[in-house]
Design a protein around this nucleic acid. Structure first.
Lengths: 152, 152
DNA sequence: TCGTTATTGATATATTATATCACCTAGTAG
DNA sequence: CTACTAGGTGATATAATATATCAATAACGA
C-alpha cells in the first residue's frame, strides 16, 4: 500500500526526467484523483482543490492541468463517463499494457486491469480488417460493481 | 443495399409488433441517422430535421426520440463520442451479437462489427474476476479510419 | 537582472444533457 | 360522434462538460 505522498513524489521525478514540471497546482489535482475511490469530473476536482487547499482553482485550469497529466501518462480520461482517474501504474517504471477500465455506472468506482496480450492482438486484427486503426488501445467497459449490485 | 425507406418500413413494423408507434418525427430522426455516414449529435439531428423537413424540431424532442429509438433497439448511443448511430441490424430480425463500434475520432465515421463470442466470454471472465459485472456488453473503440490516415 | 517561456487566471461561449410544465393529437370508451 | 385519456411534442430553463482567447504572473536561462 503506497501513500499518496510517495506516489506524487514518484510522479514528480518522472516529470523532471521528462523535462516537465509537476507544479503545486498540478500536484493538487493529481492528489485529488489519487485520494478518490472513484472517477472525478474536472469540476469536482476544482471543488476538491478549492475546499482542501482553501484557494479557488478555476475549472479552466483544471482542464489544462488534466491535459498535462494525461500527456505525462499520470492520468487517464474515461471517455465513457467524462471523468478522470489517476493511472494506477505511476510507480511502475515500465510502460504498462493496454489498460482496461471497468467503470461502475452507478457509483463511478473504477478498476484498472490489464488484458491478455493475445486478446488485444485479436481485437486489433478485427479492427484492421474493418479498415480502421486503433487510436488508443484503451478499453472502457460499462459495468456495475459488486457493492452496487448487493445494495439493490 | 437497402434503401433508407425500406429500413424505416421495417422499423415501423418492429414498433407496431411491440405496441409502440414510430411517429412522423421519430421517423425523421431515424432517417437522419440512416442517411448519415457518420455518428450525429442530438443537436446535429435537430438541425438536419429542421432543414430537411422545413420545420423546427427542438433538441429536447430529439433527445426524447433518441431515447425511444434506443429502447426499441433501433439506435445506439456512442458514449465515447456522445453521438448516435442507427443500428446496422434493423432489418435482421434476430437479436444481434455484442456490438463493437469503431469510431474514427477524426471524421466520426462509424463501423459496427461483431466480435468473436469466445473473446467476449474471456473478457467477461476478466471483468467478473475484478468484482464487476458488464452492464452493456457494447464495446466502443477509439480509432482512425483508413481515409483519414491517408489524408495525413 | 532581464527577457523569454511556461503556467495560471479570468471571461466568454460552445456543446451535450436533463427537468418541468404546458399543449396537442391520436386512439378509446361511452 | 364526442369527450376522455395517454402518449407525444413544444417551450423554457438550467445543469454539466468542454474549448477558445487574452491577460497576468511565475519560473528559468542567459
Amino acid at each position: 500500500m503506497q501513500t499518496v505522498r510517495s506516489i506524487i513524489n514518484h510522479a514528480e521525478k518522472h516529470c523532471k526526467s521528462n523535462g516537465s514540471r509537476l507544479t503545486q497546482k498540478r500536484k493538487q489535482v493529481l492528489e485529488g484523483l489519487l485520494q478518490s475511490e472513484k472517477a472525478l469530473s474536472a469540476y469536482e476536482l476544482a471543488d476538491y482543490c478549492a475546499k482542501k487547499f482553501d484557494q479557488s482553482l478555476p475549472a479552466m485550469s483544471v482542464y489544462r492541468i488534466l491535459e498535462f497529466l494525461q500527456q505525462e501518462q499520470l492520468v487517464h480520461k474515461l471517455n465513457l463517463a467524462n471523468k478522470y482517474v489517476a493511472c494506477s501504474h505511476i510507480t511502475c517504471d515500465h510502460a504498462h499494457d493496454v489498460p482496461q477500465f471497468l467503470i461502475c455506472s452507478n457509483c463511478q468506482r473504477v478498476e484498472e486491469i490489464s488484458i491478455n496480450k493475445s486478446m488485444i492482438e485479436e481485437l486489433q486484427l478485427n479492427v484492421e480488417e474493418a479498415g480502421f486503426h486503433l487510436a488508443s488501445p484503451q478499453l472502457e467497459m460499462n459495468c456495475i460493481c459488486d457493492q452496487c449490485i448487493d445494495k439493490k
